[in-house]
C-alpha cells in the first residue's frame, strides 16, 4: 500500500520529464506537447498498457494528462464492447467527465471570484 506513494511520485515525475524533453529538446510549444501526450495515452490504452500502469502507479498515472487520452479511449472501448461500433461514439466521455466538468465549473467560479492577480 505504501509503495504506491513512491511509484506515484516516480511515474508521475517521469511522465513530466518526457514533457520537459518535448519542450526543451523537441522545441514544442506547451499546447503541442500536451496534445502529443494525450494521443500517447490513448494509444497506450488501445494496446492495453495504460491500465496496468494505473495499477502500478496510482495517481502517478491518473493525474498526468496522458490519463485523459486513456480514459477517453477506455470509455469508448467499454461501450464498444457492449454495443459494437456505435459505442465508440457514445462511450467516450463515460469515464472522463470529471476532468472536463470540474475544469469548466472551477474555471467559471474562478472567473467570478478572481481577477488576474498580476505580478505585484
Amino acid at each position: 500500500m505504501s509503495s504506491i506513494y513512491i511509484t506515484a511520485f516516480i511515474v508521475g515525475g517521469l511522465i513530466c520529464v518526457i514533457g520537459q524533453l518535448l519542450f526543451d529538446v523537441a522545441k514544442l510549444t506547451p499546447a503541442h506537447t500536451l496534445c502529443l501526450l494525450v494521443v500517447a495515452g490513448s494509444i497506450l490504452d488501445g494496446l492495453g498498457l495504460y491500465e496496468p500502469l494505473i495499477d502500478f502507479a496510482g495517481a502517478g498515472a491518473t493525474i498526468p494528462i496522458t490519463s485523459f487520452g486513456n480514459s477517453l479511449t477506455h470509455g469508448a472501448l467499454a461501450e464498444a464492447e457492449k454495443h459494437g461500433l456505435i459505442g465508440v461514439l457514445t462511450g467516450m466521455f463515460e469515464v472522463t467527465s470529471s476532468g472536463i466538468s470540474s475544469a469548466i465549473l472551477f474555471g467559471f467560479i474562478a472567473a467570478i471570484i478572481f481577477k488576474p492577480k498580476g505580478n505585484v
Binding site: C16, V17, L34, F68
Partner: peptide
C-alpha cells in the same frame, strides 16, 4: 516547466 503543465492541474 512540464512538471506543472503535464498533470491535470496544468490543464
Amino acid at each position: 516547466g512540464a512538471g506543472s503543465a503535464v498533470p491535470i492541474t496544468g490543464f
